[in-house]
């Protein structure tokens, strides 16, 4: 395996945002294909990050830095790949639902999804059901992600899902939900397609949802 690819893998694990662009440039100059750099460099690194996070050898600030590095690399490779979906696995629209201004969890999921190869459109927080339906029409995402921290605002997720269905958009998108009070049972009850209990699991779930589609 190319030494430069190994350096790219290490660069992702170490979250070397500045260095990754140079390394990718070097790899391209060495004649490596964009797909190879992605598959055998960046993704190898990000998979290792996921493994280390699960056994508490890496922590969230480091994982996010790795995700950001991954994302920077993907952006660079995007115009060079023949199959765009190899780099950009899908589009995800995320936001915190109406009545809720908590967004650190939603931001985390967004950052992790970028690292997982998604284009992330972050709508913000305290979003009405209509904001979500409009965004689906405009951005045509594969996935809609909704977040809430408060038990009082969890209900807004149900309302938003209902609005998506009534607008005739439910078949077009997968819906995932998350946030401290949310669990798998709640997700099933309101008719969401999935639930992730933390940002890393959320990003994995997003990949599974687009791969299954």
């Amino acid at each position: 395996m190319s030494q430069t690819l190994e350096q790219i893998t290490t660069g992702v694990i170490e979250g070397n945002i500045q260095g990754i662009r140079q390394l990718i440039q070097k790899a391209l100059e060495e004649g490596l294909k964009a797909e190879e750099i992605l598959q055998n460099g960046l993704i190898v690194g990000m998979n290792e990050v996921g493994k280390r996070f699960k056994v508490a050898q890496m922590f969230i600030p480091e994982v996010l830095r790795a995700a950001k590095t991954m994302h920077a690399g993907q952006e660079l490779l995007h115009p060079l790949v023949t199959d765009a979906r190899a780099v950009r696995v899908g589009t995800i629209v995320i936001g915190t639902v109406q009545g809720d201004m908590h967004d650190i969890g939603k931001n985390l999921v967004g950052m992790m999804c970028e690292g997982a190869g998604f284009e992330v459109i972050d709508l913000g927080f305290d979003l009405s059901p209509e904001t979500f339906t409009e965004a689906i029409k405009v951005h045509q995402p594969d996935i809609v992600g909704m977040s809430a921290l408060l038990t009082t605002t969890m209900r807004s997720m149900g309302h938003t899902l209902k609005a998506i269905t009534e607008a005739g958009l439910r078949e077009k998108v997968k819906v995932m939900v998350g946030g401290a009070p949310v669990d798998a049972e709640f997700a099933a009850r309101i008719g969401a397609d999935g639930y992730g209990h933390n940002a890393v699991v959320g990003a994995e779930l997003a990949r599974k949802l687009v791969e299954a589609a």
Partner: peptide, 16 residues
């Protein structure tokens, strides 16, 4: 206001 500290160098330097 309304930002977050997860990407900040200060967090990286001290969280461990």
């Amino acid at each position: 206001p309304d930002g977050h500290y997860l990407y900040h160098d200060h967090t990286m330097q001290h969280f461990k």
